[in-house]
Amino acid sequence: MSFLDHLEELRWHLIRSVIAIVAVALVAFLAKEFIFDVILFGPKNPDFPTYRLLCKLSSMIGLEESFCMQENAFRIQSRTMAGQFSAHIWTSITVGIVIAFPYIIYEFWKFISPGLMPKERKNSRGFIFVASILFFVGVFFGYYVVTPLSINFLGTYKVSEQVFNDFDLSSYTGLVRASVLASGLIFELPIIMYFLTKIGLVTPEFLKKYRKFALVIVLVLSAIITPPDIASQVIVAVPVLILYEISILISKRVIRKERKKLKQQAT
């Protein structure tokens, strides 16, 4: 195929992916009450599962009620004419991206798989399943861990008793959307490292050498997306560091297979 033929093929894969996102987003748009009242505004309720679990854990380790969320001290408001409609649209699109992610990965795989050898396609058979599972685990992590910790801290933080926390709807929904999507993408780290190793940009030695730098970057990111307390940062940083170590193992396995294949070709 020529370069233009490849672009045409990519265009249709992108079009089908967009259609899937829009179809799911339309369903989410119609299910407005469930999406907003149950899912989106769930982490601001004191009886959210994460708060109950953290409250029990903090009591068990002697931190008293430091992680127990009391009644919310903030309200959510919309101060622009199109604020609620805009939040409705963007939230529906986000839901569309999240739910349609396996199909998006499927379209991506259909585009790149013709360029792989039959053995490579066979070895990568579980790519769509693994990538989807990692993404959804990351989404749940963002929704049940990153979002509640951020809301609990930012929603109760005050510089003065004279200042009231009345947050704009777009600010709240943006926080939830960013936490969920960012976590989902971060959990794709092993998949990304697999392909970077396959094309020769990353090696296990490289990942080990810069492990300390990766640790610092993860801690900085954790400090940015979570409240500035050590416990919250550790809760977010530990899974990402585990993913980094898994990426090293995956990179080792890829290199081992490549070397074995080269030896077989040489003989």
Rank of each mutant, 00 (worst) to 15 (best):
M1D: 03
M1F: 11
S2P: 14
F3T: 06
F3Q: 01
L7P: 00
W12Y: 03
H13I: 07
H13F: 01
L14A: 09
R16C: 12
V18M: 11
I21L: 14
L26I: 15
V27R: 07
A28K: 11
F29A: 12
A31Y: 07
E33R: 15
I35R: 05
I35Y: 06
F36N: 00
D37H: 14
Y51Q: 06
R52L: 14
L53H: 03
L53S: 02
L54C: 13
L54A: 12
C55P: 01
C55H: 09
L57R: 11
G62K: 08
Q70T: 12
R79W: 09
T80L: 12
G83N: 03
G83V: 12
S86D: 12
I89K: 01
I93Y: 09
I93T: 04
I93F: 08
V95G: 01
A100Q: 06
F101K: 10
Y103K: 10
Y103E: 10
I104Y: 06
I104A: 02
I105K: 07
Y106T: 09
Y106H: 11
Y106Q: 07
K110N: 13
F111W: 10
S113P: 05
M117A: 10
K119A: 13
N123Q: 11
G126I: 11
F129S: 13
F129M: 12
I133M: 07
L134D: 04
F135A: 12
G138P: 09
G138C: 10
G138N: 14
F141C: 07
F141M: 15
G142R: 09
Y144D: 05
L149S: 10
L154H: 04
V159I: 08
V163A: 12
L169S: 09
S171N: 09
Y172I: 11
T173H: 05
T173C: 11
T173N: 09
G174S: 10
A178C: 05
L181K: 05
L181P: 05
L185C: 09
F187M: 07
I191D: 00
I191P: 00
F195R: 15
L196W: 04
L196T: 03
I199P: 00
V202H: 06
T203N: 03
P204K: 15
Y210S: 01
R211Q: 08
R211S: 13
L219Q: 06
V220W: 02
A231Q: 00
A231S: 02
S232F: 01
Q233V: 08
V236C: 06
P239I: 10
V240N: 02
L241Q: 05
I242T: 03
I246H: 11
I248W: 11
L249C: 05
I250N: 00
S251F: 01
E258I: 13
Q265D: 01
